[in-house]
């Protein structure tokens, strides 16, 4: 009865660390000094996780599965599109600055880039931070065993380790930056779909819209994976076009 929740926790934990590592690596590519980017992103991620954990009980409203399903599709979209968004934003700000004559090292330029990028990292972190408390609530509801919460915590950390190891060894070399984010987005969206099918108990009207959004996110992520080479060319070209 509880095994699906463990599998869900494993997958979601792996995805959330993947988003953060991909974003840290993208920042390294776009802003330089990769080690610094990882350090700052890790700090923001942990802080945002904490913020998410603090805010989750208030957002829950008695239906952990439904709330969880409601955050999966925005997370899939934001995290999955994250690197591409960074590249496009960087290209847009660069061209705008060129057109307006704003200096590259100027405060406005740096603030625009750093502000946007780190806002996305924090947003992904907060959404991810909602997941663990909701999953623990779900596990506690499913069975009488009081140790369920700790077991979910342990699986969460295992999923994080899994994602952290897979990223540099498997995903980054095989799928590249964009592909890794898209793959994680796909897994997230599929988890959201599973939650809607098996668990959600909210009013059926809202449920349809939720299902549509989740399905849409899943399709977008799958398409991004399928067209990965073209998207890579787009991101690369956006960086070098005058």
């Amino acid at each position: 009865m509880r095994r699906p929740i463990f599998a869900l926790t494993l997958a979601l934990a792996a995805c959330s660390i993947l988003y953060e590592l991909v974003l840290a690596q993208t920042l390294g590519a776009l802003l330089g000094n990769t080690l610094l980017r990882y350090n700052v992103t890790i700090g923001l991620y942990l802080a945002a996780l904490g913020a998410g954990a603090l805010l989750a009980p208030r957002a829950e409203g008695g239906d952990p599965a439904g709330t969880l399903a409601r955050i999966e599709w925005p997370l899939a979209l934001l995290g999955g599109a994250g690197p591409m968004l960074f590249f496009l934003w960087d290209a847009a700000v660069f061209r705008a600055a060129r057109a307006m004559g704003i200096a590259f090292r100027g405060f406005l330029y740096q603030a625009a880039i750093y502000g946007f990028d780190h806002a996305v990292i924090i947003a992904v972190g907060i959404l991810s931070g909602f997941e663990l408390p909701l999953l623990m609530r779900l596990a506690e509801r499913e069975g009488p065993d009081p140790g369920a919460g700790s077991a979910v915590l342990a699986v969460d950390y295992a999923g994080t380790l899994l994602g952290a190891v897979c990223f540099p060894l498997l995903l980054l070399p095989r799928l590249g930056l964009l592909g890794t984010a898209a793959a994680a987005g796909l897994v997230n969206a599929l988890c959201g779909a599973y939650l809607i099918i098996r668990r959600a108990r909210g009013p059926s009207g809202g449920r349809l819209a939720l299902a549509a959004a989740t399905l849409g996110a899943a399709c977008l992520a799958a398409a991004a994976l399928a067209y990965n080479p073209s998207l890579e060319r787009l991101a690369s070209a956006s960086f070098t076009l005058p």
Partner: peptide, 9 residues
């Protein structure tokens, strides 16, 4: 990328 990710994990 590798050692940052692995150490964090």
């Amino acid at each position: 990328p590798f050692w940052e990710s692995l150490t964090l994990g």
